[in-house]
Write a protein that binds this DNA or RNA. Structure first.
Lengths: 182, 182
DNA sequence: CTCTGTGAAATTTTTCACAGCG
DNA sequence: CGCTGTGAAAAATTTCACAGAG
C-alpha cells in the first residue's frame, strides 16, 4: 500500500505519512509502497503493544460496569485484573471472571498483581481520594473519567476523558459549521 | 487573577494564556489581571455554551446507561431528549425521566425534538448502521464510543472516544517514562 | 516509471520581551 | 509599580519537491 493510500485513509497529507513512518526506520520499498503487515507489527512494537498491562478499575457504577465488560481491551494488551469499589454492598459481588473487592485492599492488589494502570470511574467528589490511593499503592498511570480536576505527583501519568467536553467540542464545530476534523 | 496564576493552574506558559485570551477581546486589566467571572462568561459565550443542545443516545447497554445517568451534561447545555435502542425488550422501559424508544422512531424523534447530536453507544458491529440512520434523520454531529471506524458525509461532524486508545496512550508514556503531558 | 525517504521551505504554534495602561 | 496585550523571535510541525532505489 502506498503512502498516498494510507494518507487517504487517515485523512492526512501523504508526505506526513512518509515522514512519520520514516521515524520507525526504513520499512517502505521505493516504487512499491509499504507492506501493511510489517507496518502493523513495527508500530505495535514501537508503541509497546507487546507488553501486557494489568489494569484495575475503581468504581463499579454504570461506567465501571461498561468498562469491565468492554471487549477489545484484551486484544490491545490490557488485562483487567481487579475491580474495586467502596460500596460495601458491592464488594464480594461477582462480575465476569472477577469479584468486586474493597478499596481498602488496593495496596495489596496493586503490589501482588503488578497493576500498572488505574481507571477512575467513581463520582466526582471521590475522584481525588481514589487517585491518591492509587498513587500511594504504586500505580504509574491513571485514566480519570470523573468530571473533575485531579492532581497527581509528577512521576504519575494522568489522562482525563470528559464526556461533557467531547460534546462541547462537537457543538462548537456544529455551531461554526467548520469542516469536520479527524 | 493574573495570567501567571491561570497558567499555573492550567499547566502552561503565562504568555500563552494572555495570547489566547487576547483573541476573545480585551478582558484583562493591566496591573491587575482578569476578573474570573467575566472570563467564564465570555468563554462560554464564544464556545457556544449559551445554546441548548438536544442529544439522543443510541444503545442502552452499560455505557448507554452510564451516559444517560451522567450528571453534568445539563450544566453544560446538553439536554438528553431521547434514549433509543434496537433491543425490543428494552423499548418501553423507563430510565430516569425518559422512556427507551425504538430505533425505528429515530426520524420522527430527531425532527420533532430538534436533536443536534447523536451519541453511539452500541456494539461495534452495529455502529455504522446507527451512524447512517442518525445522518439520514438529520443529526449534524455524532460522538462514537464504539471501537470501530465509522464514516459519515462531510457535512456531519464525527468524534470518536476509544477507551482502549486512551489506555494505550497511557501505557506508551509509562513505558517511556516521559514526564506527564497535558 | 513509481513511490520512498528526506533536506529545505512554508506554515503554525509557542515563547520572549517590552511598551504602555491603570 | 504590576500585569496585560502584542509585535517579533524561536521552536515545532507540516508540506513541498526531488534525488535516487527498485
Amino acid at each position: 500500500m502506498s503512502s498516498e493510500q494510507l494518507a487517504e485513509l487517515a485523512g492526512v497529507n501523504a508526505a506526513k505519512v512518509r515522514k512519520d513512518l520514516s521515524y520507525l526506520g526504513t520499512y517502505g520499498t521505493r516504487g512499491v509502497g509499504y507492506v501493511v503487515g510489517e507496518l502493523v507489527d513495527e508500530i505495535a512494537n514501537e508503541l509497546g503493544l507487546t507488553h501486557d498491562w494489568p489494569v484495575v478499575i475503581v468504581g463499579l457504577g454504570n461506567l465501571g460496569h461498561a468498562l469491565a465488560n468492554y471487549r477489545g481491551f484484551g486484544a490491545r494488551g490490557f488485562r483487567i485484573v481487579a475491580l474495586v469499589d467502596t460500596d460495601g454492598s458491592k464488594v464480594g459481588r461477582p462480575l465476569g471472571e472477577l469479584t468486586i473487592e474493597s478499596l481498602d485492599e488496593l495496596d495489596v492488589i496493586v503490589a501482588q498483581r503488578e497493576v500498572a494502570i488505574g481507571v477512575i470511574a467513581v463520582p466526582a467528589p471521590a475522584a481525588q481520594e481514589v487517585a491518591d490511593r492509587l498513587v500511594a499503592a504504586g500505580v504509574g498511570s491513571i485514566l480519570n473519567f470523573a468530571p473533575t480536576v485531579v492532581t497527581v505527583p509528577d512521576h504519575v501519568t494522568l489522562r482525563k476523558v470528559d464526556l461533557a467536553t467531547e460534546l462541547q467540542i462537537l457543538s462548537f464545530y456544529q455551531q461554526h459549521r467548520t469542516p469536520s476534523p479527524v
